[in-house]
Amino acid sequence: MLSKTRGIVLHSIPYNDKYSIIYMYTEAFGRASYLVARNRGKKSTVSKALFMPLSVLEMEVEHLNKRDLHRIKETKICYPLTALFCNPVKNVLALFLSEVLFRVVKDTEPDARLFGFLYESIQMLEYSEEGVANFHLVFLLRLLYYLGIYPNADSHNQGYYFDMLNGVFIDSIPVHRHYLNREESLVFARLLKISFENMSLFTFSRKDRVRIIERILEYYRLHLPEFPEIKSFSVLQSLFD
């Protein structure tokens, strides 16, 4: 049975000499995997060149409930991502964020709110000109909301510590080691107010920005036990060196 859906490319790996597996987050099916030929004729309706990280596609697909790998019959881009693929900074951000999404978005049930957030965020990354250095901070923090592990920002008070294990600000050092000191907690509380609209107003040193990302990834790892080391993080760090 053929269905139409929009999908966001998360990752691709070789399957054999002829095919690649494309992992996507789709509007109609949640996370899904598709088998795509590496080399296709000129008349093909599926071009592998479309499947770059964070590409947003309109597709006609064949889904069978008992099949792990599905087929794409036709596809086209929803909107061109010229800056995302040509701008070195945005390209590295796309690689980093697509790897994070590949690791955390596992649900095979559709989630319209999550898809809408991803769709609009990718558009924002493509067209933003100011505050791009903070884009991934906003994205990573807002994604926590859709994963159901967003911190309790209302619990913050001056001088409190952020308990990373429980996702709340508290007035004393917790009995475990997963917490932010007072200075870090103040920065984190401020960071929870960041958005795509105001991200250009937030300034951080290169050292502080890398440290912030490390702490956010640590928070992911604490609340998502299968969250691994993000390989593209080292590439991202090089942007701030």
Rank of each mutant, 00 (worst) to 15 (best):
H11C: 10
Y127R: 06
K106M: 07
T203I: 06
C78I: 08
L239F: 03
R113D: 15
E129I: 14
N181F: 10
E109I: 10
M124F: 02
Y23K: 10
H70G: 01
N39P: 02
I22T: 04
H136S: 11
F196M: 11
V56M: 06
Y15F: 14
F139E: 00
L180H: 02
G116Y: 07
R211Q: 12
K193P: 05
D107T: 12
M1S: 14
F96S: 03
I22R: 00
V138E: 00
E58R: 03
K73W: 04
R38N: 14
L84V: 13
S98V: 08
S20D: 15
E60S: 06
S3V: 12
T5L: 07
A32V: 10
L114H: 04
F135Q: 05
H63M: 15
Y79L: 01
E58V: 08
L165T: 11
P228Q: 06
Y19W: 07
C78T: 07
F196I: 04
D154G: 06
I21G: 11
S172T: 13
I212T: 08
L147N: 02
A32I: 09
R215C: 04
K76E: 15
L165Y: 08
P80L: 07
T45W: 01
I8R: 01
F240A: 02
A153F: 02
L192I: 02
D107H: 01
L186Q: 10
S232K: 01
S205P: 13
V132E: 06
F85L: 07
G41I: 12
Q123E: 14
A28Q: 10
M59Y: 03
L180Y: 03
L222Y: 06
R221G: 14
V36K: 00
R6P: 00
L84F: 04
E27T: 06
S20Y: 05
F204V: 08
H223G: 14
I77L: 11
G148S: 03
G167M: 11
L224C: 04
D68N: 15
E214S: 10
E74L: 09
G159P: 15
P151Q: 08
S200L: 05
Y219P: 13
L81M: 09
Y79H: 01
